[in-house]
């Protein structure tokens, strides 16, 4: 056996190790995706179906029925579906974390001289990069339906940034949900709960067209802020900006995901340490 060069690096800082470990874990998830691109399907199925159903099948009828001010329904719809895509990525996150626990991969990583936080951070980084691919696919479909962005490049990048923030928040919710789950099957039940949560927002229908008791909660749904803000950035029609949420959409689209992450990330890290009990 050849001698090992394990200790050969000149002691990098703890953070450097954390970053390196995070990237190794993230790359693992991305390599998985190259082997099994069908794992994206779970995430993409609903947004792609939504593009087909709301955009193609019901698009004209819905557009005629609610006359979105300032434009066409499909232009209004697509940013909602982009945010929906970010939200549905949570299923992939939760299943992946739960499978790693059941399969013993998490235990193995915990018995290595690496920081356990990197296991979760790596998952989150992989989620963000995967989300970029998913977003590109849904955008391409949207473009086929006639969606386009009318803003400048800066506005486009800002919109991507807001969607990435939203995905980060959902990534940490997914990690937190996946950690105590006894297996991927149990993780699936959260996924079905997500469906109404993602629809009761400013995603496919403007909140002011919902029953009044529902429009309040719907506009406070974290998805709504991101959807309205990205509609503005893409230059797509955004419905009447009458509510407080709509007026402060951009600020909320930053604040909501940061607040969710600030709550879920420490809880997830505490939970992974508590597994040792």
């Amino acid at each position: 056996m050849t001698a090992l060069a394990t200790e050969s690096r000149t002691a990098p800082s703890r953070f450097a190790w954390f970053a390196a470990d995070t990237w190794v874990v993230a790359r693992r998830h991305l390599v998985r995706l190259v082997h099994r691109p069908d794992e994206l399907l779970g995430t993409l199925l609903i947004p792609v179906m939504a593009v087909a159903m709301f955009g193609f099948v019901f698009g004209d009828a819905l557009g005629a029925a609610m006359t979105v001010p300032g434009g066409e329904y499909r232009e209004f719809l697509l940013p909602g579906l982009f945010a929906l895509t970010m939200a549905f990525g949570i299923g992939n996150t939760t299943i992946s974390v739960a499978s790693d626990i059941r399969g013993g991969v998490l235990d193995r990583m915990r018995s290595l001289p690496m920081t356990p936080a990197a296991v979760l951070a790596g998952r989150s980084v992989a989620d963000l990069l995967t989300a970029a691919v998913e977003l590109a696919i849904v955008m391409a479909l949207g473009t086929l339906l006639g969606w386009q962005w009318h803003g400048g490049v800066v506005a486009l990048l800002a919109a991507f940034g807001l969607l990435a923030l939203l995905r980060m928040a959902f990534s940490w919710i997914g990690i937190l949900l996946g950690l105590p789950v006894s297996g991927p099957e149990a993780a699936m039940k959260y996924f079905s709960l997500l469906f109404p949560l993602a629809m009761v927002a400013d995603t496919v229908i403007p909140t002011d067209l919902m029953p009044t008791w529902l429009s309040g909660p719907a506009s406070w749904n974290p998805l709504s802020a991101t959807v309205i803000a990205t509609r503005n950035l893409f230059g797509n029609p955004a419905g009447p900006a009458t509510s407080w949420v709509a007026e402060h959409a951009t600020a909320l689209a930053v604040a909501w995901p940061l607040a969710i992450t600030a709550v879920c990330m420490p809880l997830a890290l505490a939970r992974i340490r508590r597994i040792a009990r």
Binding site: A5, R28, R32, H35, L112, P113
Partner: peptide, 18 residues
């Protein structure tokens, strides 16, 4: 999902081998 080699390389990296 990974190959045997990819598994070994990944865990070796997490053992902090170059």
């Amino acid at each position: 999902v990974l190959t045997g080699r990819q598994n070994l390389v990944m865990f070796a990296r997490l053992h902090h081998l170059r």
